[in-house]
Amino acid sequence: MTTQSSTEYEKYYVPEKSKMAICATIGLFLSTYGAASIMNDMTFGDPGVETNSWTIFWVGLFFFSATLFAWFRIAIKENIAGLNSAQLKKSYVLGMFWFIFSEVMFFLAFFGALFYLRNLVGPWLAGEGEGGRMNHLLWEGFEYNWPMSLTPQEAVGGAANQPIANMGSFTSAEKSMAFGEAAAWYLWLPMWNTLVLLSSSVTVHIAHMGILDGNKRKFNLWLGISVVLGMLFVGLQILEYYEAYAHYGLTLNSGIYGSTFFMLTGFHGFHVVMGMTMLLIQWLRSVKGGHFTADDHFGFEASSWYWHFVDVVWVFLFLFVYIL
C-alpha cells in the first residue's frame, strides 16, 4: 500500500531528549504554588505569621525564566546549525499563529464580560426589562449610567444595608477615564497612548521591510525605535494608573467600571510588556549576535505578529473602554 519516498520532503528534525520540559515544569509549579500562597496569605492569612510564599514564588519564577532562556537559546542554535527544514519552520509559524489566536480568545472573555455587564446587567439592576425585579428586591434606588457614578451598594447606603452578602465594599470613581474637557484634549493620556502604540506598529513594519531587503541598518534602527515606543507606552500607562488612583478615585474596588477598566487595560499592558521584551530580545540578537537575514528571521517575525496583535487589542480597548 505504501512505498518509502524521500523525494518530496526533507528529513524532519526530531530533537534528542531534552531536560527543558521538566525544568520548565518545576519552575512553573513553584511559581504558581508560590503565587497562590501569597494571595492566600494576603486574604486569609494571619499577618503576624511569617511565610515563605514569596521565596517559593521568586525561586520558581527565576527557574522558569532561566529555563525559557535556555530553551529559546537551543532552538535558535539549532536553526543556525541548519537543522530546521522548511517544513519544521512551518510548524513554528503554525504554533505562533494558533498561540496568538488563543490570546485573542482570552481577551474576548473580558470584552464579552464588558458588553454583557454594560448592556444587560446595568439596566437590569436599575429595574429595566426582564431582569428588572432585582432592583425592587435588592437595589432600590439604583440608577444606571456608564461609567457607573454610583454602585448598587452605595445606592442602598453601603455594605451594611445591602440584603445579600458579598466580598467587601465597592465605591464608585469620582471621575471616569473617558474623554473629558474638549479644551484640554492634549492632556488626555489615552489619545497619546493610542498614537504611540499605533506608530510603534508602523515602525515594526518598517523594520520588517528593512530585513526583507537585507538592510540590517534600517532593521536595527526601526526595531530599536519600536522598542522605545513600547517603553513610552508602558510609562504613559503607569502614569495613567497613578492618575486613576491618586486623582480620579478609580481603583479595582470601583464597582464594575473599575473592574473592567483595570482588568482590560491591565492585561493589555502585561501583554505589551511581553511583546516589548520579545522585540527587545530580537533587537539584541540582531545588534549583538548578528542574527537574522533577509530569508531567515522568524524570531523577529513572530514577535512582530505578537506586537501587531497587542496593537489591535488596544484599538478595541480605546474604542470600548475609553470612547464609547
Binding site: M105, L108, A109, S259
Partner: peptide, 26 residues
C-alpha cells in the same frame, strides 16, 4: 483561554476587590 479568563475574574474578585460576579458593585 475563556476558562482562564473566568477563573482570573474569580481570583480578582476574591483577592483584589473587583466585582465581576457581585451585583453590589454592578
Amino acid at each position: 483561554p475563556v476558562l482562564a479568563g473566568a477563573v482570573t475574574m474569580m481570583l480578582m474578585d476574591i483577592h483584589f476587590g473587583t466585582s465581576f460576579f457581585s451585583a453590589a458593585g454592578g
